[in-house]
Structures are given as structure tokens and as C-alpha cells.
Design a protein around this nucleic acid. Structure first.
Length: 378
DNA sequence: ATACATACC
DNA sequence: AACTGGTATGTAT
């Protein structure tokens, strides 16, 4: 959503003479910290270096798929009759009124976002990195998830958040939502003052810098909402660039998307978001997966599967859980993701049972050149 | 209705 | 991209 409001990036209709500008995934200039950098030059260099790689080809495949979805949407849009449009416009208007009636402005939510979290945590444990350009990664690619970082950093800021909201929501490793309504009322302080206080406490107690936003619900506290693919579709197929557009063209959204998707778009347009603290739900599945350099070596693949099955079994038993359907996840050397599942007559949790069924699923897919295997129990 | 596969967040 | 887990959706049976 922030991207939609700012409306700066031109994701479509890029001249063919500059192909690197259409390649959005590896390098996006939307991120902060790009001041004083020759953006186009960097983008071109990254493009030249990525071109032809397996990963790159898969990204192109996904971009083509996205274009197909957009074209498909355009086509369906063109087939709507005047009557259809009037009909769905009515539906949209009614739905907007209903959604508006649910607006709750009684709560104050605060969204915290740790700045450059992984790099910042790494720098804490290795101060010599301070001021140097760095990325967290390995296996010839840039990644982030790092268990050391997790343990170190997550614990670091959590006590601060808890002082303001015992039930704060961890949205991801580096993001959290706090309901600060009571804090504001009891101490008679403004929300922006609380935001500043939290930022200062986090820095004093962890050395990590974070940003904090405030709003009457979680959507507005974060100013978030719509992802890259959806944004592209909305922009190019519907010419929807702003929240206002989402509401004005709600009829088309209701006509072409499922009711729940249309509701989602209209809510974003209205700035409606979660105001309650959902109670922690019970876990419904447990999974694990590993990436490695792509191989066809079946002994290696079965060995990986055995390791994953053992870990999954241990994790399940740690929480006293069992699963009745077992899903095998594969990613081919060309980055295509596949899942294969089997539902069993009885729940299982032993590593032998898991491996037995996972092996059968894998066997049916071989030979194949794979770069990831995963297993999931539901 | 159930199982399975995929996309998206 | 990595890894986890949930939801939504579509398809086949």
C-alpha cells in the first residue's frame, strides 16, 4: 500500500531497450538507503550478472505468468456488459457501506519495524562490521534467516514490547504490533510519545534501531496491504493506483474477484484493519525444509529426506502432536515448487513412519534434479 | 465432501 | 532468495 500511495515506481510498459528495468525482483529501488547511488547503473549491473542463471529464468517465468494473469483480467474486464457493471457497482457500494459500519476508532495500535534487522544483529555480535557494506547470506545467494540472529535479536526487543502490551503480536522476526490503548489512557500520554519512548528503550536495551508507526488499526499502523503481484494487476488491468481508486472501481473488483478478495481490496481502500488481539491459535501443521545445491544424486536426496523426517518427528513429539496427511515439498533445479501429499488412515509421528511415506512420495518423482526438499505433517 | 496442488502473505 | 505456517482458491474425484 505504501507503494501505491507514493506511486513512484513504473512497473509496466518499460521500453525494451532497457530490459534491466523490467527486472524487479533482484533489485528494487523501493527500499530505503539508496540515496546517492546511481540506481539505474546498479540495476543494469545486477541485471547483466543475473541474466541466464537458473534463478533468473524462473523469475522470468513468474513475470510471464503475472503478465498472463493481468491480460486474463483485462479480457474479462472487457467482456463485462453495461448491465453487469451497473449491477456490480451497486454491490460494491452496498459492501462499502457495510464495511464502513464496522470501523472501530477506539483502539490505538503501534507497529514496530526493526531497521536492517539481520545486519544490525550481526553487527552487534561482530562490531568490526560497523559501517561496512554487508549482506547476510550463503551458498552463493543472499538470504537472511539465521538462527543465531533469531535467538539474539528476538529476545532482545521482546521485553520492551511486553511492558507496553503483554499480548503483543509478532508479525515476523523483525516486526511487531502493540495495542497501546490502555498505556495511552492510563498514563495520559499521546501515542506518538509512546512510540518515541519505545524506540528509545529498544535502542538503550538492545542497541537496535527501529521505526514505529501509530494508527487506529494494524493496517494503518503499518501502512501496508497490497503485495507486488496484486499491485501490478490492479495498476495495469484496472488503473487502480490509490485507495480512492480502489473504492471508485470497486464494482470491477466485485465483478472479477471472489467476494473475500473483493472485501479485502475494499477494506484496504477504506483503511480498515484489525483492531482486536486475536487469541493465539493452535498450531495446525508443522513442517521443515532444506535447500542445497541442486543434485540428481538419489542417495543424497534420500539421505536429506531421512534427516528431515527425523527432525520433523522430533519436533512433533516435542509438542505431543501427530499428523494424518504428510506433504512432500520439492523445488527443482529450475526453481519450480511442487508438493505431493498422502493422507493416511492413522495419525503418525514416528520418524520411521514419516520416512516410510515420504520415501514413497519422493520415489514417484525421481529422477529429478532438486535444490530443496521439505516435509510437512497436518 | 474430501483430497490434493498452488499461490500468496 | 531462506524457512514457517496459515489462508484462499481451484481442480479432481
Amino acid at each position: 500500500m505504501s507503494k501505491m500511495v507514493k506511486s513512484e515506481s513504473s512497473s509496466s510498459d518499460v521500453p525494451l531497450s532497457k530490459p534491466w528495468q523490467s527486472y524487479q525482483t533482484v533489485y528494487t529501488n523501493a527500499k530505503a538507503g539508496m540515496d546517492g547511488v546511481e540506481k539505474e547503473k546498479v540495476q543494469r549491473i545486477v541485471y547483466e550478472m543475473s541474466k541466464g542463471s537458473k534463478y533468473f529464468e524462473n523469475e522470468e517465468r513468474k513475470e510471464a505468468l503475472m503478465r498472463q494473469r493481468t491480460d486474463n483480467m483485462r479480457e474479462r474486464l472487457g467482456k463485462l456488459s453495461i448491465t453487469d457493471i451497473a449491477h456490480y457497482q451497486k454491490i460494491a457500494e452496498r459492501r462499502i457501506t457495510e464495511l464502513e459500519a464496522t470501523r472501530d476508532l477506539s483502539r490505538i495500535w503501534l507497529h514496530v519495524d526493526m531497521d536492517a534487522f539481520y545486519a544490525a544483529v550481526e553487527t552487534l555480535s561482530n562490531p568490526s562490521l560497523k559501517g561496512k557494506p554487508m549482506a547476510v547470506g550463503g551458498m552463493s545467494m543472499i538470504s537472511t534467516a539465521n538462527y543465531e540472529a533469531r535467538r539474539y535479536g528476538v529476545r532482545a526487543a521482546m521485553p520492551v514490547f511486553q511492558r507496553y502490551d503483554l499480548n503483543f503480536i509478532s508479525a515476523s522476526l523483525d516486526e511487531a504490533y502493540l495495542d497501546i490503548t490502555e498505556v495511552c489512557r492510563e498514563r495520559d500520554v499521546r501515542s506518538d510519545e509512546v512510540a518515541e519512548e519505545i524506540r528509545r528503550s529498544v535502542f538503550e536495551e538492545t542497541g537496535l534501531i527501529c521505526s514505529a508507526g501509530v494508527g487506529p488499526n494494524r493496517l494503518l499502523a503499518k501502512i501496508g496491504g497490497i503485495g507486488k503481484v496484486t499491485e501490478h494487476i490492479l495498476r495495469t488491468a484496472f488503473e487502480i493506483d490509490t485507495c480512492k481508486d480502489l473504492l471508485e472501481k470497486g464494482g470491477f473488483l466485485c465483478a472479477l474477484f471472489s467476494p473475500s478478495s473483493a472485501d479485502f481490496f475494499l477494506s484496504v481502500g477504506l483503511g480498515l484493519g484489525g483492531t482486536d488481539t486475536p487469541q493465539a491459535r493452535l498450531r495446525k501443521s508443522m513442517s521443515n525444509e532444506r535447500t542445497f545445491s541442486a543434485t540428481e544424486d538419489e542417495a543424497f536426496l534420500y539421505q536429506k529426506l531421512a534427516e528431515l523426517s527425523h527432525i520433523l518427528s522430533t519436533d512433533l513429539q516435542k509438542e505431543g502432536l501427530r499428523g494424518r496427511t504428510l506433504t512432500l515439498k520439492l523445488k527443482t533445479a529450475s526453481f519450480e515448487v511442487q508438493t505431493r501429499a498422502v493422507t493416511l488412515p492413522k495419525c503418525i509421528c514416528s520418524s520411521e513412519d514419516i520416512l516410510l511415506h515420504a520415501k514413497k512420495l519422493l520415489k514417484a518423482e525421481l529422477p529429478a534434479s532438486l535444490r530443496l526438499i521439505g516435509s510437512k505433517a497436518v
